[in-house]
């Protein structure tokens, strides 16, 4: 009995085993086919869910793995530098200056009121030339008295008194050159100071403007670190997707009085790592030529992003007016 059972089992096995393995393989294949099929056009997908609306501060760096934070937050470091006021005030005072002081035309672009003492603002252009000019005057007369001295001296006093003539001209020449050198140094220092100050001021003004601009973006949480709300990385910055979305949206102008129906178009854009648009293509036109043309304008204006991307990227952008028409 047993042997016959064994025989039967062996028979069964010999019949099933090769086929069973194949069947198993086919079964696994078929199961894996399901997710693949899911991505084919055979299964139309629901439209992508609307991403959360956030304003991205376009000053922020684009990073690959943004940290958790707010995309609209302003970069933190620049905040303490608060010199927003010097910019508007000094400007009017700058232009009238070039007239009074001949030796110092270069330091003129000095913008700041407070620090560079030698150059007072508008109201006192006259007193300055006086203190300045006297300096060069004493310099010139000195060489004149100096020169005659060495000439008469060698005649009456032949050799022994070498020490006197030497020290005298040495002193005068040294004085002269020292004075000149000092003057030069002072002037150079002044110029440099003024230049530096001007540069600093420009920088400060630019920074202030940048800060002012970034703080224009209304957000209750500008103190938050720069990042993405769903960021899981460790880099301070915003994601390329959020950045590109904000950048292109800013370039797009379209009036609700142009709108007819609810147009929607899909565009494929390919940016390289420098943030330059290499090519774009309409995957779906809206059928409303006015709408499509406004998109072409927006894309043309977005040919160069204001910041490089972490890598070359392709974006599929769906343009529609859902948010605008809701409000009207």
């Amino acid at each position: 009995m047993e042997s016959s059972r064994k025989q039967r089992w062996q028979q069964l096995q010999s019949v099933f085993e090769p086929g069973f393995k194949q069947m198993l393989l086919i079964s696994v294949l078929l199961h894996l086919l399901v997710p693949i099929l899911y991505y084919t056009p055979l299964f139309p997908k629901h439209k992508i869910e609307k991403p959360p609306v956030y304003r991205v501060n376009l000053v922020n760096k684009i990073v690959k793995n943004p940290q958790a934070g707010r995309p609209e937050a302003a970069p933190v470091k620049q905040k303490p530098v608060v010199k927003p006021k010097p910019k508007p005030e000094p400007k009017p005072a700058v232009k009238p200056k070039p007239v009074p002081i001949p030796p110092k035309p270069k330091p003129v672009p000095v913008k700041p009121k407070p620090e560079p003492k030698p150059i007072p603002p508008k109201p006192k252009p006259e007193p300055k030339p006086e203190p300045v000019k006297p300096k060069p005057e004493p310099v010139k007369p000195k060489p004149e008295p100096v020169k005659p001295k060495p000439e008469p001296k060698p005649a009456p006093k032949p050799a022994p008194v070498k020490k006197k003539p030497q020290p005298k001209p040495a002193v005068t020449k040294a004085q002269e050159s020292a004075l000149e050198a000092r003057l030069k140094k002072m002037r150079a220092a002044q110029k440099q100071k003024a230049r530096e100050q001007a540069r600093k001021d420009k920088l400060a003004a630019l920074r202030a403007a940048a800060i002012a601009e970034s703080s224009n973006i209304e957000s209750p949480t500008t103190d938050a670190p720069v990042g993405m709300m769903d960021g899981k990385g460790d880099q301070a910055g915003v994601s390329a997707v959020a950045f590109v979305q904000e950048f292109i949206q800013k370039q797009w102008s379209f009036s609700k009085y142009q709108a007819a129906g609810s147009p929607e178009a899909e565009v494929k854009l390919f940016y390289n790592a420098h943030g330059t648009l290499l090519h774009y293509k309409f995957l779906k036109k809206s059928g409303n030529s006015v709408f499509d043309e406004s998109l072409i304008r927006a894309i043309t204006k977005s040919r160069q992003l204001s910041q490089p991307l972490p890598e070359s990227m392709e974006f599929h952008i769906i343009f529609n007016l859902k948010d605008m028409l809701d409000k009207s």
Partner: peptide, 27 residues
């Protein structure tokens, strides 16, 4: 199968929806 599945996960272009223009007037 794994090789076949790869392109679906990697070469997926970032999808963005812009649902209102940034400027609602024409300069």
């Amino acid at each position: 199968i794994i090789i076949l599945c790869l392109p679906f996960s990697v070469a997926f272009a970032a999808r963005i929806e812009i649902s209102a223009p940034g400027e609602q007037t024409i300069p």
